[in-house]
């Protein structure tokens, strides 16, 4: 957490809960989102991240607790009285309106004069790189284009906070990666606080200034992408954000001298020959390569340490070919990593 006392948080949750019957979708959550940051809510489905977003938008009302936008309490305000706009997962474009009418909808509601509306629509279409599309119908657009229209429709109102509910989920990989870069660029251009919900950890790591990892209606960890990736606070975060080897109990004791649970990232581990010297700054454990998966850029090794523990090791294919990599199957090896790459974990 970066407490920033100089400015009021864009979004503030004070012990907010949202229960659906017995289900605690959001459970006693306290959270600050800073002004102007790209904030991601990351978590598996059902972890409460979307409910959190809907609480900010006003589509859901909290069972308990209060919500503030820029210091103003909005807990019971309906969506149309909140200065936030949403890009929906299914885009929610109005099928009976043209692209231009969709984008101008917020201005029409505010009764902005027609010439101004037209001018602003042109600007927004320019911003999302769809100039000249104003007279088309949403049904004539591709998924990526609809996504841009939904973004333009939300941004034209100059909201103080833009909420994005898995907006890239329906796009294919190439387009998604392209949109990630564009979204980030647009956010920096307009300087609005973005709250971005996703279940894709790579997306959250690429785009966010900070991210919160959700699980069971609670936040497991908040931090910068590097923080969360390099120093996962809990076993859940270590497992959900990237791939981690989690080691505990007897085997942990033989490696570090203590049975405390810790995690280590697969790319931090080196494979050495058995009997190779180990520096005092390193940890080492022996094992046998059980399986090799050749992935092109890199190779993933599954190394059997004992009956209950396999460690995953990822190695860039700087020299290795698929032949040489696959030939290592069954070999006994020594796994070595620097002591400071061990991350102690709390919780289960």
């Amino acid at each position: 957490m970066h407490p920033d006392n100089s400015s009021i948080p864009a979004v503030h949750f004070a012990s907010v809960s949202r229960h659906f019957g017995e289900v605690r979708a959001v459970d006693n959550l306290t959270l600050d989102i800073h002004d102007g940051e790209f904030f991601s809510m990351l978590g598996p489905s059902g972890s409460g991240k979307t409910t959190c977003l809907r609480l900010i938008a006003g589509f859901e009302l909290p069972t308990q607790g209060d919500i503030y936008l820029y210091g103003n309490e909005v807990t019971d305000l309906p969506p149309y009285e909140r200065d936030v706009n949403t890009v929906f997962q299914d885009y929610a474009l109005f099928p009976h309106m043209t692209v231009g009418e969709n984008i101008a909808y917020g201005l029409m509601i505010k009764k902005a004069p027609k010439p101004e509306r037209q001018k602003r629509v042109e600007e927004m279409l320019e911003l999302v790189r769809l100039p000249g599309y104003a007279s088309r119908k949403p049904s004539q657009l591709s998924g990526g284009q609809r996504q841009r229209v939904a973004l333009a429709r939300a941004l034209i109102n100059h909201p103080r906070v833009l909420l994005l509910d898995e907006p890239l989920g329906a796009l294919d990989l190439k387009l998604r990666q392209q949109m990630q870069i564009e979204l980030k660029a647009i956010q920096q251009q307009v300087g609005i606080t973005f709250v971005f919900v996703t279940h894709d950890q790579e997306e959250a790591l690429t785009m966010s200034d900070r991210l919160a990892v959700f699980n069971h209606g609670r936040i497991e960890q908040i931090g910068t992408p590097a923080d969360v990736y390099e120093r996962p606070a809990t076993a859940f975060v270590a497992g959900f954000v990237g791939v981690s080897n989690i080691i505990e109990g007897e085997i942990a004791k033989t490696i570090t001298g203590s049975p405390e649970k810790f995690s280590v990232r697969p790319e931090k581990i080196f494979i050495r020959e058995v009997g190779a010297p180990v520096s005092p700054d390193d940890y080492a454990v022996e094992g046998r390569i059980r399986d090799v998966v050749y992935l092109g850029v890199n190779t993933r090794y599954l190394v059997e340490v004992n009956d209950t523990l396999d460690l995953t090791v990822v190695k860039q294919n700087l020299r290795a070919t698929s032949m040489s990599a696959l030939a290592q199957r069954g070999q006994p090896v020594l796994l070595v990593w620097e002591r400071n790459h061990n991350r102690p974990l709390v919780g289960n």
Partner: peptide, 18 residues
């Protein structure tokens, strides 16, 4: 009529009547 369209309309500032 998907529910998200009604939510989107409210989100963009329209009162229920609008």
């Amino acid at each position: 009529v998907p529910k998200s369209l009604l939510e989107a309309s409210g989100d963009l500032g329209a009162r229920p009547g609008q």
